[in-house]
Nucleic acid binder design. Structure first.
Lengths: 131, 131
DNA sequence: GTACGAGTTGAAGTGCGATTCAAGTCAAGC
DNA sequence: GCTTGACTTGAATCGCACTTCAACTCGTAC
């Protein structure tokens, strides 16, 4: 029933180093050992699935740890997720706004006929002006 | 007429360390010196304006250097910008797609009634399943 | 002459999420 | 008893855009 780290990595599509990293970071509980080697219960795959979902959602390793073990045991997964997700959604909206701003700058800048970059200081948009 | 680094920093809204960093990175030409101190011509402010616009557009320092000095002198600013911007826009669209995917995950996950995180392995979406 | 403020340098540090490395441990097969 | 292969550890490395640090150099004012 016990899985060695290589087998867990293969099934999860992760590297063994990533699994050790997650363990050190507190995402995965330290498994039992047989002659120093980590031996995992297959339940760990469920936990890894959850970890990967949280990371895919944009949570940092630290935030994911908070989701997994940073709340009183009485707090349900749904409650934890809602709390963290609303924060994260705010961040993502900020990032979207930032990306849209970048796109505007990319599309709108340097439409001048200047021959050299040095000449472009003149034709810059007002918002970018420096004293 | 000459500006010391502190004055340039103040006018540009940058730190002196950032200006030295840009110089080392090849974004700013090494200015003249008076007793070891950098003395800038006020034209440098125009160049800084351009650098900040490129960085605001999402270009890395390296890409910004390419824009400023990585093309034959016959290439106009508008041509350089178009070439680099189309690449960058592709990257930004990928990032937007990634952000939208994150938002979906945040909104759709953990709507279960599980009391403990360990129970949630069951109620995960199929796309996240691990062998 | 000495204190002050602004500048100089190269090296090291920051945060993130891992990966890579060297050197060692261990069980199984031959 | 020796090789093989999978594992173990802690430490170092990566990329990015800077910042911070210590130790030093200047010119000016008092």
């Amino acid at each position: 029933m016990g899985l060695l780290i290589g087998e867990v990595a293969r099934r999860a599509g992760l590297s063994t180093s990533a699994l050790r990293y997650y363990e050190k970071a507190g995402l995965l509980p330290p498994p039992s050992r047989v002659s120093k080697r980590r031996v995992y219960d297959s339940k760990v795959l469920g936990r890894i699935r959850i970890i990967l979902l949280a990371l895919d959602a944009g949570f940092t390793v630290k935030e994911t740890k908070t989701f997994l073990s940073g709340y009183p045991v009485t707090t349900t997964p749904a409650e934890r997720w809602r709390a963290l997700a609303s924060q994260k959604l705010t961040e993502l909206d900020e990032q979207m706004a930032r990306l849209n701003q970048m796109k505007s700058i990319l599309n709108d800048s340097f439409q001048c006929a200047c021959m050299r970059v040095e000449d472009c200081a003149e034709c810059m948009p007002p918002s970018q002006r420096i004293s």
